[in-house]
Computed example of a mutant assay.
Amino acid sequence: MTLNILGLDKKKTEDLAGDLNELLANFQIYYQNLRGIHWNIKGKNFFDLHIKFEELYTDANLKVDLVAERVLTLGETPLHTFEDYTSRAKVPVGQNVSKDVKAVELIVNSLTELLKIERQILDKSSEASDEGTNAMMSDFITEQEKTVWMMNAWLENSI
């Protein structure tokens, strides 16, 4: 077994970096969706949602950076083109979303896809003894599960 500079199995960390790049691509689509709904939201919930969407895209932007830096830490190169992102995206693209319910549904659907990817990475990082990636995924999952719960609670009152 060949070890990388972190003392982790090189093959396993290469695979993890590939998975992290998939997560990065999907986070970039999610981030752009959040920017779009922040800009385009209309209706009586505008003020509350406009602020919430800004909070979410600011957080997503931070997570994008954390994921890209983790890829680098593992010795690989993070994806960085729109073509890379769109070709790997599982997160739905929200185009011209301006209605509150549709916007919140887009967030829930996007986070559901991100959580699937993060749970796969969590399992693999545990198997690879990669505590750095494991801790990051655990933190992301905890935060995003709470956001999904909150968004679903909001949707329950809006339908």
Rank of each mutant, 00 (worst) to 15 (best):
L114N: 01
D123N: 01
I51D: 12
I159G: 05
V104H: 07
D65E: 15
N96T: 00
I117G: 02
F53E: 03
L56T: 01
H50Y: 14
I141H: 09
M150Y: 05
D100V: 01
K90M: 03
F53A: 08
Q120I: 04
N109G: 09
S126E: 12
L66S: 12
T2P: 03
M151I: 03
E113F: 02
H80Q: 13
E22R: 13
E76T: 01
L114C: 05
Q28D: 12
N33G: 06
N40M: 14
D100E: 15
V148G: 08
K102W: 02
A135I: 11
E55H: 08
L122Q: 10
V64R: 07
L20S: 03
M137C: 15
E83I: 13
K52H: 09
E22S: 15
D100H: 04
L6D: 08
D84H: 10
E22W: 11
L66I: 03
Q120V: 04
L8G: 04
Y31K: 05
V67F: 09
L106Y: 11
D130F: 00
Y31C: 05
S158V: 10
L155F: 14
V148F: 09
E156T: 07
H38I: 06
Y85D: 00
L56H: 07
R70K: 14
N21D: 10
G18W: 05
A89V: 06
F46P: 10
I37E: 10
F53S: 02
M1D: 02
K10V: 05
T58F: 13
Q95G: 00
V64I: 15
L16P: 07
L122K: 10
L79E: 11
F47P: 11
A128T: 06
D9M: 04
T73R: 13
T147R: 15
Y85F: 15
L34E: 10
N134Q: 14
I121T: 02
E105K: 13
L16F: 09
D123H: 04
E55F: 01
G132D: 12
R35N: 11
K10Y: 03
D9C: 06
T147A: 13
E22T: 13
L106M: 14
L20H: 09
E55D: 11
S126T: 08
E54S: 06
E105W: 09
I5P: 13
V97A: 14
H80L: 12
V64L: 15
I107C: 13
I159D: 02
S126G: 14
A135N: 11
T58I: 04
V148H: 08
K146F: 12
S129R: 08
H38M: 10
E105V: 09
